[in-house]
Simulated assay, not measured.
Amino acid sequence: MSCKRDDIFNAARKLIAECGFHGASVSLIADRAGVGAGTIYLYFKSKDILINELYRDIEKRVSAFILKSYPETGPIRERFIHLGTRLITYFIANPLDFRYGEQFYNSPYGTAFRRDRIMGEPGKRTVYNDLFEQGVAQQVLKDLPFFVIDSLAFGPLLAVMRDHILGFITLDKPLIEEVVAASWDSVRR
């Protein structure tokens, strides 16, 4: 990625996390990035494309982080605990990515991404799809629709991460382990 493109991404992520999608105009993003508004359009044909590409960039970084040392052939519980722990660890270290991702997922922008991720559209399957499928097939996880398993598994993790980022709680390693284990308990048979 080019330096200007990085500057645009960083400015957009910060502004959108602070002001929302509508409050982060192209001119504000350009001003914060130290570029002209026209420069943004050299890299992105529209603000919508910028928003979606920024999410994909964050998703790639999150994925690379959580998959580091991932025990692909380990027991379902071990893999679940790994993914949940790494996810929380990443977002604690990158709160702007969390805030951006939360806004993205709870907006019309995120609807298609969420559906594709959970439903496993060709080329868009994730490690979670495979884990949940295998867990249900092995009768380790509850036999529930994937949207429900995803919500039960990750909804509490997202809420706890949000509360940490807002300063309501402090997530340390032992508490993270307890939270992820409790999340596991909500989906296991």
Rank of each mutant, 00 (worst) to 15 (best):
E177Y: 04
D185Y: 11
Y55L: 09
P108I: 14
I8W: 13
K45H: 11
T89W: 00
S107T: 14
G38Y: 09
F91G: 05
I58N: 11
F65G: 02
G34Q: 07
N129H: 05
A17F: 03
I58P: 13
A182E: 08
T126Q: 10
T73Q: 09
S183K: 02
P145N: 07
S107C: 12
L54K: 06
Y55D: 12
L15I: 02
I29C: 06
V26Y: 06
P122C: 07
A24E: 09
T111N: 13
L175S: 05
A12T: 02
V35Q: 01
V160D: 04
F65Y: 15
A12W: 02
D7R: 15
G120H: 07
V160G: 03
F146Q: 10
P75W: 01
I66A: 00
R79K: 14
K142T: 03
D116I: 06
N106P: 05
T126C: 11
N106S: 06
C3Y: 15
E102R: 10
A182I: 04
D57P: 01
I169D: 00
R162T: 01
A182D: 10
N10P: 06
L42E: 10
Y109D: 12
A11P: 13
E18V: 08
E53I: 02
Y90W: 05
S46P: 06
K45M: 09
Q139D: 15
Y41C: 09
G38D: 11
V140W: 10
G23T: 12
D172G: 04
L50H: 05
Y43F: 15
L67W: 03
T170L: 07
I165Y: 07
L157T: 01
V62S: 03
H82A: 07
V187H: 03
H22V: 15
Y41G: 11
K14G: 05
D6C: 10
D31E: 10
E53S: 10
L152Y: 10
A64V: 06
G123T: 09
G36C: 02
L28S: 13
I58W: 01
R61L: 05
T85K: 05
Y100T: 03
V127P: 01
D130C: 01
Y109Q: 12
A24W: 12
D185C: 08
D172M: 04
K4V: 12
V140A: 14
I66V: 14
I176C: 02
F44W: 09
S2P: 08
Q103G: 15
P95L: 08
S63A: 08
A11V: 04
T170I: 09
L42V: 11
Y109G: 11
S107P: 13
L42I: 11
D116S: 14
E18K: 12
A17K: 02
Y109P: 12
L141K: 08
